[in-house]
Design a protein around this nucleic acid. Sequence first.
DNA 1: GTCGCTGCAAAGTATTTGCATAGCC
DNA 2: GGCTATGCAAATACTTTGCAGCGAC
Lengths: 141, 141
Amino acid sequence: MGKEQINALQERGVRVTPQRAHIWRVLVESGEHFTAEEVWKRVRDTLPGLELSTVYRSLEALQAVGLVADSRLPEGPRVFEARTALHPHLVCESCGEISHPEPEIGWRLLEALSTGSGGFEVRELHVVAKGVCPGCAGGRE
Amino acid sequence: MGKEQINALQERGVRVTPQRAHIWRVLVESGEHFTAEEVWKRVRDTLPGLELSTVYRSLEALQAVGLVADSRLPEGPRVFEARTALHPHLVCESCGEISHPEPEIGWRLLEALSTGSGGFEVRELHVVAKGVCPGCAGGRE
DNA sequence: GTCGCTGCAAAGTATTTGCATAGCC
DNA sequence: GGCTATGCAAATACTTTGCAGCGAC
């Protein structure tokens, strides 16, 4: 089952170890973002001896080849996710829920930023918006 | 000279102490962003006994009333700045320089995000772009 | 077989907290 | 004068690092 994921690692020239394969699988299959510690807890189910430091080092390796991206949200530790497209984060100040808008919007943001940034060539874009999600706005305070 | 700054604090109902007044002054007069430690070093010139923990607590108080905003850049500790407008950060991967595009662009980003985020009400927008600044792009590698 | 990855342990950096006193309002 | 902010000290949270042996290629 995890065959395609392993291929993804090999293609990028990343040495494939069980640790990296599992870490990568967790990120890809969930499609979510996790802290290093969350990844660690999940992968430990199948690799009991796994060290948190290894998780950090593996995530760094995956980042180096562009498979993983990290974000620093307004609070809490860094979160990591499989790098798919640009990924704005919407953090609800009321319920704390973190959601992603349609990815297409990332490109519009990129475009807006590129045209107005005076020659700065944007390679990677991190957007975090704080606000109120539809659910919380509905249940008025 | 620092009269207007002190007023800004009073108007917001922040108890005015020398520590807070100086911290606030450093941020306003420089117009730059600093880590808590950088603020600390600067203010210590005039307030030798100042503790780093006090800087954190003061910055938090100023944040609570909307005078200060913080950003978490891709690397390093949090940076704080006087809250003026939306403030995208452009981080050059080559020289490490952090620049700000014209602030007007922030509003365009906000607009783009608001229209495509499915009812999420954006209150605060943090944008960090990694890329290559004009200077480094000129001196081709 | 080689070189890089991992486990283990420890250190390092960033940030927060408890408590008694000082100082703003 | 009351109540909060500060100094001081310690704790906590997150992340990185050194080293020796193991495992992927």
